[in-house]
């Protein structure tokens, strides 16, 4: 069980930093709290007593939402469900909508935040691959010498390893910024022991845009669960970009991922799944991008 002497809900960034200074070394930040509460139970951290829980989910900067035709800026405390039920956000980040439907369940998504998912830095974090596909930047803030300062970095640099990020002890993850990708076809693939409420064994984000000739104008692929940190599949992307979307080429691109699996367990399984996810995920994304979608037909034929 999780016990605390104080549960603080600062309404401003300044108040949050004041509370963090007051409880220095004796607090834990929470937003949705959906990971923190199950963490403090038998079999994981056991009973945990923390002097202060500081709930950052009410801070305006962490609840920001700016969406236009080219850019998206969302506060770190944005609940995952927004990617499904906020139409503008879903259109600007089609792969996040696909990801969100696989994230925990409707009820937990209503509370769980995208920032929480990033700072936990699970190798299998659902939100990280799609945000990598968006070339997302994260914005961090701290209060030092009485002044609030912000810094920015690429998400790929922020996530350092299992449970490790670039976040300093006195920093808060404020917001995530990325390119909007309206009109892209998207797919999120995930496999685990059940549909809802499951940690991914492998997950994959795929976004694709086609040109007028139905060649691949842009595509981004990112994978989670197969190594210490989620990553982009640059080799496969580069191979496919600019070319025709045929099943043979998807298969070839998928084959390039074989060496990527560095997980501690179930290598062969993950290799097979990743291969399948690249082909099937791209085929679905291509179809949603408005492609004539020969790959899907071919794919179905090849598995009939």
């Amino acid at each position: 069980m999780l016990y605390c002497d104080a549960y603080l809900t600062p309404r401003s960034l300044a108040d949050a930093f004041t509370a963090m200074a007051e409880y220095r070394g004796r607090y834990r930040l929470v937003a949705g709290a959906t990971d923190t509460l199950p963490w403090a139970r038998a079999g994981r951290a056991g009973d945990v007593a923390i002097p202060a829980l500081i709930d950052v989910s009410a801070i305006p900067e962490l609840r920001e939402r700016r969406v236009d035709a080219t850019r998206v800026r969302i506060g770190a405390a944005t609940p995952m469900q927004r990617f499904l039920d906020d139409g503008d956000l879903a259109r600007a980040m089609p792969v996040m909508a696909r990801c969100a439907v696989w994230f925990a369940d409707d009820q937990i998504r209503a509370a769980a935040t995208v920032g929480g998912n990033l700072v936990n830095a699970s190798p299998a974090a659902d939100a990280t691959p799609p945000l990598l596909a968006h070339d997302a930047q994260v914005e961090l803030a701290c209060a030092r010498e009485g002044k609030i300062t912000r810094r920015r970095m690429a998400l790929g640099d922020f996530v350092r390893g299992p449970g490790k990020t670039a976040l300093e002890a006195d920093e808060i993850l404020l917001a995530i910024e990325c390119a909007a990708l309206p009109g892209y076809g998207a797919e999120f693939e995930k496999v685990g022991h059940r549909r809802s409420l499951v940690i991914a064994t492998v997950c994959l984000a795929a976004v694709v845009r086609l040109d007028a000739a139905h060649a691949i104008a842009d595509l981004r692929l990112a994978v989670g669960g197969v190594g210490p940190v989620p990553c982009r599949l640059h080799e496969s992307e580069n191979f496919l970009r600019g070319g025709a979307a045929t099943l043979a080429r998807l298969e070839e691109a998928a084959h390039m991922t074989v060496g990527l699996v560095q997980s501690r367990t179930r290598h062969d399984y993950r290799r097979d799944v990743l291969h399948g996810f690249v082909v099937r995920g791209l085929a679905s994304a291509l179809r949603r991008a408005g492609g004539a979608s020969p790959p899907v037909g071919e794919l179905e034929a090849s598995h009939a």
Partner: peptide, 23 residues
């Protein structure tokens, strides 16, 4: 008590949540 089962689901401001995961 860990958000897995849903026996504690309630509406909070009209949105269904698992009350075992809500401080």
């Amino acid at each position: 008590g860990a958000g897995e089962c849903g026996t504690c689901s309630v509406f909070l401001d009209g949105v269904l949540v698992k009350s075992c995961l809500v401080p």
